[in-house]
C-alpha cells in the first residue's frame, strides 16, 4: 500500500486499521518537528500549487493541506516534511535534528525521513 496519509484524514474502516493509526501519527510527528529548536514553521508537505490544482476537491472537503505526509510501504514508513528554520542555529544541523527526532519517535518502527529546508531566516 502506498497511499499518502494526511493529518486529520478521517480513517476509513480498513481491516488493518493502519490508516487511522497513521493519521494520528502524522499529527504527533508535527508536534515532534515543531518542537525541534530552530524550526520556525512547517509547510504543507505537498507544494501549494498542487493543492490549488486540486482546488475543486478541497472546495468539497474544506481540508487544509497536510503538513506532514506518511507513506507506508510495509517495510519502511516514509515521512516527508518541509520546514523553515531560523538563523540562530545552523540550518543543516536543524534539518538533521528534525530527522533524528522523527526517527526516535517512531522507534522501533523503521523509517525513511525526508526533510526539506525551504526557508532560512524569519
Amino acid at each position: 500500500m502506498t497511499e499518502p496519509l494526511e493529518v486529520g484524514d478521517i480513517a476509513p474502516a480498513t481491516a488493518s486499521g493502519t490508516w487511522a493509526e497513521l493519521g494520528g501519527l502524522a499529527e504527533q510527528l508535527l508536534g515532534v518537528v515543531q518542537s525541534v529548536d530552530g524550526v520556525i514553521a512547517v509547510y504543507p508537505a505537498q507544494p501549494l500549487w498542487q493543492s490549488i490544482a486540486g482546488a475543486a476537491l478541497s472546495v468539497v472537503t474544506g481540508d487544509a493541506p497536510a503538513l506532514i505526509t506518511l507513506t507506508d510501504d510495509d517495510e519502511l514508513l516514509a515521512v516527508k516534511t518541509r520546514i523553515a528554520v531560523g538563523t540562530s542555529r545552523p540550518a543543516p544541523a536543524v534539518a538533521r535534528e528534525v530527522a533524528e527526532a522523527v526517527r526516535r519517535h517512531l522507534l522501533p518502527r523503521p523509517a525513511a525521513v525526508d526533510v526539506s529546508v525551504v526557508k532560512v531566516g524569519a
Partner: peptide
C-alpha cells in the same frame, strides 16, 4: 466565492 463555499461546508 470558492473560499466562501469551502468555509460554509467546513464549519
Amino acid at each position: 466565492i470558492d473560499h466562501l463555499r469551502k468555509r460554509r461546508n467546513h464549519a
